[in-house]
């Protein structure tokens, strides 16, 4: 749901404005991609269920904010949502500016724990198994988690309040950008900087990097692989949940559609791959780049391609993958991926 007010702007202004919107969308991709890369780097697992973690984050956030929890048992064909119990009415009475951030924090914790649980139960035993086997497992997990979300919360569109009304925009001259987008970008910058500081300076960050490079040597230093794996999945899960929480107001205007969330989250994979699978910085750049490219292509490429004899009216949906392929043709390791540092 791209709400663009592109009335009386010059082409240049329009590009700037769309770029800002693209950055907001890219901020979401960047955080999912960053989590994906962290997990890959630290544990060697290509977690194709990462988008599903964002999906869970979105729905848990919805449940908490809207005060509607899925009936887990007995589950009927179409998942049923129950209102919060009476004694929780104080919660739903809270101002949305308080309820939303608290809900997001809880969703972050929930998805982080879910990530750790997945690692512990489904993937720990697969250490050392062929990449192919692990990929199949995570693809399977994506299906399982998505299906569970859909059946718990039912596939109908949901609406929830957010602290960002659709009409609330920041105006700079002729340009206007929604506050939800501004916040998405700010949150992304803060999370990314926080993560890089952690990764670079904290003891656990060093342990993660060491384990990523040589697990046995790290173990010989007393670094537990299980700690590092759990931490990577918790961080990845937390980032997916944050991405989901930003996605709701910035791109969905509070209207949650299962298919939109699920397939938008998938765009983070081309973002991570074109940035370089083992490069956290690359994931961020790739995510932002793909967000911008997608918004710009919606505006400028779609109309052109729709007029072709073979009409491609929704080209922006596949554009991330086209970009990824183009980048990989030139740089097989992605923009910032490394082959290996060797002594020369």
């Amino acid at each position: 749901m791209i709400v663009a007010q592109i009335a009386q702007l010059s082409t240049f202004e329009e590009i700037i404005q769309l770029t800002l919107q693209g950055l907001a969308l890219g901020a979401v991709y960047a955080l999912i991609a960053l989590g994906f890369v962290i997990i890959y780097k630290a544990t060697g697992v290509l977690n194709f269920a990462h988008g599903a973690l964002m999906l869970v984050g979105v729905y848990v956030t919805f449940s908490l904010v809207a005060g509607q929890i899925p009936r887990v048992w007995p589950i009927s064909g179409l998942g049923q949502l129950l209102p919060f119990p009476e004694w929780m009415s104080w919660w739903t009475g809270l101002h949305i500016n308080v309820r939303f951030p608290i809900s997001v924090l809880l969703a972050i914790v929930f998805v982080a724990l879910l990530g750790m649980l997945i690692e512990r139960t489904a993937l720990r035993k697969l250490v050392g198994q062929p990449v192919f086997a692990v990929v199949l497992v995570t693809l399977g997990l994506e299906l399982v988690i998505s299906t569970m979300v859909q059946s718990f919360w039912n596939p109908l569109q949901k609406a929830m309040p957010t602290p960002f009304p659709v009409t609330a925009s920041l105006r700079i001259g002729n340009l206007s950008i929604q506050w939800a987008s501004v916040w998405a970008i700010i949150v992304m910058v803060v999370v990314v900087l926080g993560f890089f500081a952690f990764f670079k300076y904290s003891k656990y960050g060093v342990a993660m990097r060491a384990t990523a490079l040589d697990q046995e040597a790290a173990m010989a230093m007393g670094i537990k692989a299980s700690t590092v794996f759990g931490l990577a999945w918790a961080l990845g899960g937390a980032m997916a949940a944050i991405a989901g929480a930003m996605f709701i107001p910035a791109r969905l205007a509070g209207f949650i559609s299962f298919t939109t969330v699920r397939f938008s989250a998938l765009n983070a994979f081309p973002a991570a791959i074109l940035g370089g699978l083992d490069s956290p910085g690359g994931a961020v750049v790739g995510g932002l780049g793909i967000g911008v490219a997608q918004v710009l292509s919606t505006r400028y490429l779609n109309p052109v391609l729709a007029d072709l004899p073979v009409s491609l009216p929704n080209f922006h949906l596949v554009f991330p993958y086209v970009l990824m392929l183009l980048v990989l043709l030139v740089r097989p390791y992605g923009l910032f991926g490394t082959e290996e540092v060797r002594r020369v």
């Binding site: 060093v206 990097r209 060491a210 490079l213 040589d214 230093m221 007393g222």
Partner: peptide
């Protein structure tokens, strides 16, 4: 470990910090 097995992409200091984990 045999063959040194230093963390090649990390700085010397970060290697030492890993050792002091």
């Amino acid at each position: 470990l045999e063959g040194r097995r230093i963390f090649a992409e990390l700085s010397v200091d970060d290697n030492l910090r890993a050792g002091g984990y």
